[in-house]
Amino acid sequence: MLTIQNLSKTYPGGVRALRGVSLEIPPGMFGLLGPNGAGKSTLMKILATLLEPDTGSAKLGDLDLVANKDETRRLLGYLPQEFGVYPKMSAAQLLNHLAVMKGIDNAGERKEIVEGLLQQTNLWDVRKKALGGFSGGMKQRFGIAQALLANPKLIIVDEPTAGLDPAERNRFLNLLSSIGRNVVVILSTHIVDDVRELCSRMAMISNGELLLEGAPGQAIDAMKGRIWTKVVETDAERNAIEKSFSIVSTHLIGGQHEVRIYSDSTPGDGFHGTDADLEDVYFLNLSRHQAAAAKPH
């Protein structure tokens, strides 16, 4: 269990990236959802020992991640949001090197593990190629391979699917899902589907604050029967709806605008009910939070 308490971080420029975030993260996949700039990466970097929080603590069991960085790093598998590689090394070389760094000192064992990971991540056939020639997806899979090295107890993957094509993304999510159940895996993303497909639990943060925490199913259940849709023809029509209801999202479907609204009761007037999904949870929470933030305190 990873316990995060009251974490805050303000950057030297005055940007408050985290404002007293507290979270309980059980083993298994945990999704961290939020728009760009919400503070996800900051939180991840703090957990990955790359940043010092201003206040608060993060503990994995008894281990204080902030105070005891050396210990933390030994348990950690980290895939940053953006990373490069040494362009002239091959995947196998770099992975082997990282395995040494992660303390796998038995050469035979190391070889086995590295080769296993290369196969798992489907990089086996290109293992001897220079990393400089890898495509985005391959590089991303290499990233996950290195994050999985040496059985980490805490795996942090920051926006891993950004920029992947659907097939790549699929393969990538499959891989993530194969990670053992007793490991804490934190997956940050701004893609709702990632969380829906993978995570048993999730949290949403925006503007450095925690909006919601729980199982995706629960959150969806809470909205059951409260999401309504309507296809609108004109902007005027849309504006009219906006005045009387809280719009969750507007989608283009076949060139027409479909408006989804949240309403406890039937809005009538051409709306019909629909199943709530995680995206609705996401958008609704975001817009409520923004509305709250816009109000003068």
Partner: peptide, 24 residues
């Protein structure tokens, strides 16, 4: 080239996580 090489390869399934000896 790398892409093509990769596409030709079969998907593989993850072996279960195993215990590794580590030392620092």
């Amino acid at each position: 080239k790398i892409d093509e090489a990769e596409k030709a390869s079969r998907p593989r399934f993850a072996p279960g996580a195993r215990q590794v000896e580590r030392s620092f």
